[in-house]
Structure formats: structure tokens, C-alpha cells
Write a protein that binds this DNA or RNA. Structure first.
Length: 215
DNA sequence: TTCGAGATCGGCT
DNA sequence: GCCGATCTCGAAG
């Protein structure tokens, strides 16, 4: 049982600059409801100072957890069907957080596969929404303290990821400040999600359909 | 293998 | 109303 003996990271661990926390989360293990995921890819969001962050425009009902104490989960709903999970870090006023983008299922893979309708092992938690699905994370866990045993827990890496295996690059799927290299991943790990630059969604409108047809 | 578009709904302007 | 820190499937190369 990989996850049972894991000790949650102390809350003080998260009360540091967001990039430091993101780096230490590589290789850390997220445990929830019989499934454990070893993180292989994360993204840093510098809260109120970051145009790409949900906290950039100030506190709202949705992002209030980001403005609270570090060590708590910020879970939000997006695209009408997906959940994504962040870990709040740093002083509350900064509202910075780390998005958990992908990982490798290290315990409860049968349970995770059931939730992911039999996806391939490497795909079980590859991508932020898939990771939440594999771990059965949704809005119920928004605001959950991950630094205490029970429920949703994040534990330190069994052994630190070698510095020469950590890679940095642009963040994924955002249109603002997309050039900041605040996406961190473990080089060569098969569970790292494929990089896709932000592409504005195309939307069918009557005017567009008309111009496509004739003009 | 790569690309494009649909699904679907809550938050914010 | 508009658009998103996404995923999946089908079509084309």
C-alpha cells in the first residue's frame, strides 16, 4: 500500500513562493479515496499578479479559496464538464496556486481505470481533468486541507526528483501571459500531457457561415 | 499522426 | 451573452 503510510506535507511547506512549491510537488503523491497519483506535471499561477490566474481580477465566490491559507485545494469546474485542482501556496494576499496537470497512478489503478472507463495506464491521470476524474475529485473538495490525514492528502516525494530531469516550458491552454515558462514536468515521463499551445475556440455564427460560403 | 470541432454550463463582463 | 487553466472522436494526410 503505497499511500497508506505517506505523511501529509506540513502546511508551512506550501507557504512559500509558488515556483518553489511547484518544483517540490513534482514526484509528490496525491491520495484520495483508494487512488494515489504521483505528480509528473504541474503549472504555477502567481495569483493576483498573474494575468493568466483566476485570481487576477480579484476575489470572487469561485476563487475565494485561493485567497485563503496555503495547503488547501482549489477545485473549479470548467468547459461545462471538467474539474481541475490547484494547491494554494504562499501568503493569502498573493492568492498564488499550483495547478496539478498530470501524474502516474501508483495505487488503486483498478479503481482509477473504472472511473476513466478503462483508459490505458499512462492515460489514467494524464491531463488536469483526467487527473481529477481518476482521483474522484470534484467541487465537494474545494477548500479541503491537504495537509492533514484523511480525505484528500498530498505527501512529499519518496525521493526528490533529480534536478536534471526537471523541465520548464510555457503553460498550456491559456491566452494571457502564456509565454511565462511556469509549466514544470519530469522529462521523459510517459504520463506528462502533450503540449498544446493555446488556440482560440472557433464559434459558428450566422455571419461567419455567410462569409465562408460566398464572400 | 495531426488537426478541427463539438460537448456543455458556470463565472464574469 | 461570451468564453474558458479540457477531452474525445472522427476525418484527413
Amino acid at each position: 500500500m503505497v499511500g497508506r503510510q505517506l505523511t501529509p506535507l506540513r502546511r508551512a511547506f506550501y507557504d512559500r513562493p509558488v515556483l518553489d512549491v511547484a518544483l517540490d510537488l513534482l514526484g509528490a503523491v496525491v491520495w484520495h479515496d483508494e487512488v494515489a497519483v504521483r505528480l509528473t506535471e504541474v503549472e504555477a499561477y502567481a495569483g493576483a499578479a498573474d494575468p493568466a490566474s483566476h485570481a487576477y481580477r480579484g476575489q470572487t465566490a469561485r476563487n475565494r479559496v485561493m485567497f485563503g491559507p496555503p495547503g488547501h485545494a482549489y477545485v473549479y469546474f470548467t468547459y461545462g464538464m471538467h474539474f481541475c485542482m490547484n494547491l494554494v501556496c504562499g501568503p493569502p494576499a498573493l492568492a498564488s496556486a499550483v495547478l496539478l496537470r498530470a501524474g502516474e497512478v501508483v495505487a488503486g489503478s483498478d479503481v482509477a481505470a473504472g472511473r476513466r472507463s478503462g483508459a490505458a495506464a499512462r492515460d489514467l491521470a494524464r491531463g488536469p481533468a483526467r487527473l481529477c476524474q481518476a482521483l474522484d475529485i470534484d467541487r465537494r473538495l474545494d477548500g479541503e486541507d491537504v495537509t492533514v490525514p484523511g480525505g484528500l492528502v498530498v505527501a512529499a516525494a519518496a525521493e526528490p526528483v533529480a534536478a536534471n530531469r526537471v523541465r520548464r516550458g510555457p503553460r498550456v491552454g491559456i491566452s494571457q501571459a502564456a509565454d511565462r515558462p511556469w509549466r514544470l514536468w519530469i522529462d521523459g515521463d510517459p504520463s506528462v500531457s502533450a503540449y498544446r499551445a493555446h488556440v482560440p475556440r472557433r464559434r459558428r455564427t450566422s455571419g461567419e457561415a455567410k462569409s465562408l460560403g460566398g464572400h
